[in-house]
Design a protein around this nucleic acid. Sequence first.
DNA 1: ACTATATCGCTGCCCAAGCAATGATTGCTT
DNA 2: AAGCAATCATTGCTTGGGCAGCGATATAGT
Lengths: 179, 179
Amino acid sequence: MSPLYRATHYGMKNSVGYLIRRSTNLILPQMEGLFADESLTFSQWTVLMALREWGQSTAADVARHICHDAGSLTRILDELEGRGLITRVRSETDRRVVALTLTTKGLSTVENLLPRVVEFWNGLLGDFSHPEVKLLIKLLTRLVAAAGEQRILPRRRRAFSAPQHENDLGRRQRRGQQP
Amino acid sequence: MSPLYRATHYGMKNSVGYLIRRSTNLILPQMEGLFADESLTFSQWTVLMALREWGQSTAADVARHICHDAGSLTRILDELEGRGLITRVRSETDRRVVALTLTTKGLSTVENLLPRVVEFWNGLLGDFSHPEVKLLIKLLTRLVAAAGEQRILPRRRRAFSAPQHENDLGRRQRRGQQP
DNA sequence: ACTATATCGCTGCCCAAGCAATGATTGCTT
DNA sequence: AAGCAATCATTGCTTGGGCAGCGATATAGT
């Protein structure tokens, strides 16, 4: 209830959103450089990491976990499959889904690149103590959870005066259960 | 020095990068919805906020603060100027730069929208205590600072085996002082 | 004073990512 | 069983943002 932010005091440099956006725009291009010699996009890297993490998975699942558009993901998978890094196998039980698996080549690619990424992050978080990192992760996890909840329930949002113009949340509501 | 991450234990769901990307992809579209009835993009909103924050500024400055490409910013400014939200005035002392100012209309637009944004963030951070928010902000600020330092000095990066292929960091080095 | 280099704003171009629509499939409801 | 809604993967379309290049200007080096 107690408002954490006041409009009058609201400043960009102190806003969480600003900081997150800024860190994304700063860090992401740098990471992109890490995979340049493997000609891997950051998004492609993320997909490979997701498969390494959760083993076999489906495209829709990966898209949800990465918060990535499913349409774009299809093209990424095309590329990765063409290079022999993953395999696509139509599921037998549910013939809609395609099971994604990391090939041995794909796995070794990830394993080769991973130390580089780890080292990059160690450098980035060099000034952070171990508990601080854990704290940051914990806070961000909670933030993501809160943002996720707000997204899953697109209707009945009374937080802000609902925008109901041309191209607003109507699109997003399509994903929901609303007709 | 002490490594915060180990490659063997490295998991996506615990990685700061993953969380930041995820929160961006979750939060940003939601914020976009906040400005839909004003037909404002999130980037446009950010520019207006930046001008409100720092008063008069130049395009290059704003681009740097927002971590946004200067080229794209030009088009955003075109749009905002066309709508009478900002003014572009060529500087007298340095005729390269263009001074950006928020018009009264632009200022009122920001002020009208701001409570909505504040409310949105209050909802998002509802589970956070005040100190927690301050902590998150402090940690993110440090992260941004670290990422910024690493970017400003593109040369002499021994963190990872320097990729020197076709389209790698050469682009990024262009920003530096290197010829 | 003159050249070289950097900066500024701007434009054209390209690519990645999101949106909408589609066909196939599955599950739910009645 | 039968219709209806939801899900899945995929494709075309559109857009937003990054990159390279440009002319104009400013500054540093000599």
